[in-house]
Write a protein that binds this DNA or RNA. Structure first.
Length: 459
RNA sequence: GUCCCCAUCGUCUAGCCCGGUCCAGGACACCGGCCUUUCACGCCGGCGACAGGGGUUCAAAUCCCCUUGGGGACGCCA
């Protein structure tokens, strides 16, 4: 069996989004699994909308996700000659023709057919006129007028189209640029792509492309159409469903491992298993296990996975990941060892890196602002007395363990539960009622800061 | 409108190809409990689905047909 070659072919007209990332992932996984090649092709034939910035952003997102590609990225804008040659050849062979119809006319006719209940396809009026190049002319493919075109989709199974459903698609635009369908076929054929894994929305392009392969006398690749990712309302995932760009998730504090795991599991499964490392996926991934139905993007499950991977991340790594969020808030970086201890106390309490930073913020604040409702509830005269007594017992050599003994002693003396003492103290030290373990906090803060925070509360 | 695709808990899914082991399994979320200095984590338990209708068959979540519902495509965008 010849080597498997897959590709990811984004157009740099926007950031890498969730759906694109999954397509890239599936292509990457198959190539890695079968020891094949995974190539990246930038589809920038739309010169108006394509930018270098988006290209760079897409590459950065791929890199962040750890999806490495083989060789240098291929740019369609560098291969225009190739497309022109192919188009010329098709025209000479009578498999394509010049069309002089104006876009406005076509648009008008399309609307009219649609209104009349028909499928709005090109009516073929220039098909047999044998026209030549002219300003404003395009080249169209001369498709068959009968017969059927189909393939066995690696995900969806057999799909067949009636050729009468297909119209003569434009291959060369008025401005001399090739169109998507032509460029894709030329590239996939010349780059030796064996498996085309792409979004469901390309199913309708596939028969046209197959016809082009045949006209070009090129061997057909295998096709696999991955179902779409939908939003909670079951419409195509878009900005209104929240963040869609991969890098936006990075900024929110998601781990690439979590994103990759989530995306792969959305549409693919391996029995009941939920957790997969990238490496494990490359060992198990199989197109046969990819589902046929569209899936709803579920941020809750992503959160769960992200929390899982955060919990698995060792403190020395996590510290580096969380620090930027704290730094952005203007805090001074403590010793690495201390930061690691701090991170460890919040590691199991947040679902994103940003959340971890938020939960650790009180360690860095000079005097954490007290939660108003909690203050009213816990800073009662009785509790203030308790805290005052505690302050009296405080001296610099106290360890967290001593602290615990003192608190238990105080509680006993006052005939209250331990919680009655810890909550006001927690509030004084963190400004909140929910926090990491009180004694861990005490250990990290140290007597000086504790005293300062107590004094602030005790006016 | 036309064509294409799809259909198991709210969501992701296992099971479907090779019908019986499924009064349908797992996960997220949700609810309850345990643990506990708070919040989490963790552990235990609960709620919850084969879209509907016809066939085929001794037997259907699994095969066939129809209906309904959903998604996608219909560009000189990709």
């Amino acid at each position: 069996m010849p080597q498997v070659v897959t590709r990811f072919a984004p157009s740099p007209t926007g950031h890498l989004h969730i759906g694109g990332a999954r397509t890239a992932l599936f292509n990457w996984l198959l190539a890695r699994r079968l020891n094949g090649r995974f190539v990246l092709r930038i589809e920038d034939t739309d010169a108006l909308r394509s930018t270098k910035e988006f290209t760079a952003a897409i590459l950065a997102a791929m890199t962040w996700l750890k999806l490495d590609w083989d060789g240098e990225p291929i740019y369609q804008s560098h291969r225009l000659n190739l497309y022109r040659e192919a188009i010329d050849r098709l025209v000479i062979e009578g498999r394509a023709y010049y069309c002089h119809c104006r876009p406005e006319e076509l648009d008008k006719r399309r609307k009219a057919t649609m209104a009349a209940g028909g499928k709005p396809k090109y009516d073929g009026r220039c098909r047999d006129k044998n026209l030549g190049p002219a300003p404003g002319a395009v080249v169209r493919f001369k498709g068959p007028e009968s017969g059927k075109t189909g393939w066995t989709d690696l995900i969806k199974g057999p799909i067949i189209f009636d050729n009468r459903e297909l119209d003569d698609l434009v291959l060369l635009r008025q401005d001399g640029q090739p169109t998507y369908n032509l460029a894709v076929v030329i590239d996939d054929a010349t780059m030796g792509i064996t498996h085309i894994i792409r979004g469901d929305d390309h199913v309708n392009n596939t028969p046209r492309q197959i016809l082009l392969y045949q006209a070009l006398d090129a061997p057909l690749p295998l096709f696999a159409h991955v179902p779409m990712i939908l939003g909670a309302d079951k419409t195509r995932l878009s900005k209104r469903h929240g963040a869609t760009s991969v890098m936006a998730y990075k900024e929110m504090g998601y781990l690439p491992a979590a994103i990759a795991n989530y995306l792969t599991r959305l549409g693919w499964s391996h029995g009941d298993q939920e957790i997969f490392s990238l490496k494990e996926m490359t060992e198990l991934f199989d197109l046969a296990q990819v589902g046929r139905a569209a899936g709803v993007f579920n941020p809750e499950k992503l959160n769960w996975l992200n929390a899982y991977y955060i919990k698995k991340t060792p403190p020395e790594t996590l510290e580096k990941l969380v620090w930027p969020y704290l730094e952005a808030r203007g805090y001074i970086r403590p010793e690495t060892e201390e930061l690691k201890k701090i991170i460890l106390t919040v590691r199991e309490r947040g679902k994103t890196l940003a959340e971890l930073a938020e939960k650790a913020e009180f360690y860095f604040q000079d005097l954490p602002p007290l939660d108003q409702t909690a203050q009213a509830k816990f800073m009662t005269p009785d509790n203030l007395t308790l805290l005052r007594e505690l302050r009296e017992l405080l001296h610099n050599s106290l360890t967290a363990e001593d602290f615990e003994n003192i608190l238990r002693h105080l509680a006993k003396e006052h005939g209250v539960k331990l919680g009655a003492v810890t909550q006001p103290l927690r509030l004084a030290l963190t400004g909140r009622t929910a926090s990491p373990g009180l004694f861990e906090i005490i250990d990290i803060l140290g007597p000086e800061k504790i005293l300062r925070r107590l004094n602030a509360v005790l006016k």
